[in-house]
Amino acid sequence: MTSRDTILAAIRANQPDRLPLPEQFTFETTYPDLAAQFAEVLAFVGGQAVNVPDYAAIATYLRQTYADVLSIGTTIPELADVADLDLTLITVPHDLVGLNLAIIGGQLGVAENAAIWVDEQHIPSHFRAMPMITQYLAIIIREVDLVSNMHEAYRRIDVAATGFGTFISGPSKTADIEQSLVIGAHGARGLTVFILKE
């Protein structure tokens, strides 16, 4: 017998009698203002939310904030003018290593924990590393795509729609040295989330 068959046979012999799945495992959460709740939690986890009326406002904000920064890449056509890197020329993820600012889209944002779902509809498969390898990250979501909690988020997304997807909540961080929080462990050192009202 292969190990697979041995393991599965032992499991079948040893598992207890079937117990049902719980009927209630999702809960409703109501916040008076989803965007305000999202922004508050994002600040708590080290990121920053900016409310904007349109893409032009995002472009203005980015030009001001990252005035002297080179190596900016985006996957969002409306913001192509802000970027100086042509991502179509990059074919291997390692070449993203010089990226200073990545600007990408997200499918939805979760108010309870400031997590944003990003999958291969927002970043191409060979750029899976993009949100982590970049020095700074900006994600754009629409205000209508804010949900209250994770149960609602999983109702809205299809985790298997593409080969990879991730919830990102704040910039990368560690507290492994004496529990002192340091932002910018291996991934982005800063995260700005633009909440688009339209």
């Binding site: 495992f25 999702t26 939690v41 708590f44 986890v45 309870e112 924990n113 400031a114 997590a115 999958d119 498969s125 060979h126 899976r128 982590m132 909690n149 994770m150 149960h151 988020a153 999983y154 109702r155 985790v159 298997a160 593409t162 080969g163 990879f164 997807g165 991730t166 919830f167 990102i168 909540s169 704040g170 910039p171 990368s172 961080k173 507290a175 991934g187």
Partner: peptide, 30 residues
């Protein structure tokens, strides 16, 4: 959809964070 339950509990129980920074879902190799 059961992940909604576990991801709400995991980081809060571990470090008091609302969720880990990255919760990455792998389905296919790149």
């Amino acid at each position: 959809e059961h992940l909604g339950v576990f991801l709400r509990l995991l980081a809060r129980s571990a470090t008091g964070q609302p969720i880990t920074t990255f919760s990455s879902h792998f389905h296919k190799p790149r």
